[in-house]
């Protein structure tokens, strides 16, 4: 049962978490668990409640009701929390007139983290060369790296990163992706928020999706893709009118596309090929086209937006 113990030591547990600001329910009866050993993508459009949830987990904001714990304890009860939990909330956090090294040294000192660890994380995040520069002179990407350096200071088992790839160049985005995967392989709990599905799905093993403060999905990434990404078939023929008529007769809804192609949603190739063969229609092209992941995600979050648009008194 060793594995079981490790899970409970570092899992992030959110139960019935609710945060109300005036009339707005920023987080609404949220319940989920973030497990170690994998990257969990925390998705939702801007204003869905991702950052608020992270602040609630870190004890920065007080929940209206519900609880958030890390390894079974509220964050604020942790002794020397940087050694357990690393967080990147806001790249603007370091004061502009401090040097990167000064910012990290102050954080490290409070949790009795040795100064040499500051040099290590500066190296690890690729900003060692700029360590003595004032943060004011940093680009957004460099500030982001400094924020990640701060999160890694205490070599924590749990990481919460709010939009870490924000402002990074393409090379930086690949770097952060590899870093997150490596941290998860080392058995750490990694929660990473983003509003971009395509990017997140490329490195997250698990997805937690929010919309208007509510939980919309809590599922392995591959299950989400399997369940939500509808198949689509692209076909080109010498007799478009007849194929169209045949498809309609069999309950499909072909849509005309460029170059005389037809697109048919919600079917597999194996259904269309034999059908055309039976009717003796010549096919010049028959291919599966996956509707994008981004579309599936937008469909999911749009459903919530539509619900709220129809019931404005809920807002």
């Amino acid at each position: 049962m060793r594995g079981g113990t490790v899970v409970t030591m570092t899992a992030i547990d959110v139960k019935d978490l609710t945060k109300v600001y005036g009339q707005v329910r920023a987080v609404d009866r949220l319940t989920f668990c973030v497990r170690p050993g994998q990257v969990t993508g925390f998705l939702g459009p801007n204003g869905a409640g991702k950052s608020t949830t992270m602040r609630l987990v870190l004890g920065l904001d007080r929940p209206t009701s519900g609880t958030a714990t890390i390894g079974g304890r509220p964050f604020t009860r942790l002794e020397e929390p940087l050694r357990h939990v690393g967080a990147l909330l806001d790249a603007r956090a370091p004061h502009g007139s401090r040097t990167a090294r000064g910012h990290l040294l102050a954080l490290a000192a409070s949790n009795r983290i040795p100064a040499r660890r500051v040099e290590e994380v500066l190296e690890l995040t690729g900003i060692a060369g700029a360590a003595s520069r004032r943060v004011r002179t940093f680009s957004l990407g460099m500030r982001q790296r400094l924020g990640i350096a701060a999160a890694l200071l205490g070599d924590p088992r749990v990481l919460l990163l709010d939009e870490p790839s924000n402002g990074l160049d393409p090379e930086g985005i690949i770097w952060i992706r590899e870093l997150l995967r490596r941290l998860a392989r080392e058995g750490r709990t990694v929660l990473v928020s983003s509003h971009l599905m395509g990017e997140t799905a490329s490195f997250a093993d698990h997805l937690i999706i929010l919309g208007r403060g509510r939980l919309l999905a809590d599922t392995p990434t591959k299950d989400f893709i399997a369940a939500r990404v509808k198949p689509r078939v692209r076909v080109r023929t010498t007799e478009p009118a007849r194929l169209r008529e045949v498809l309609l007769r069999h309950g499909h809804t072909p849509v005309e596309s460029d170059g005389g192609r037809l697109l048919i949603d919600g079917v597999e190739i194996d259904a269309i090929g034999p059908l055309a063969a039976r009717e003796g229609i010549v096919l010049l092209e028959l291919a599966a086209e996956e509707a994008t992941l981004e579309q599936a995600y937008l469909d999911l979050t749009a459903a919530v937006a539509e619900f709220t648009a129809r019931a404005p008194q809920e807002a």
Partner: peptide, 14 residues
Amino acid sequence: QGGAIRASLTAVPR
């Protein structure tokens, strides 16, 4: 200024 207080209270929640 910025979110310094959040970084500070994440290091020292008391």
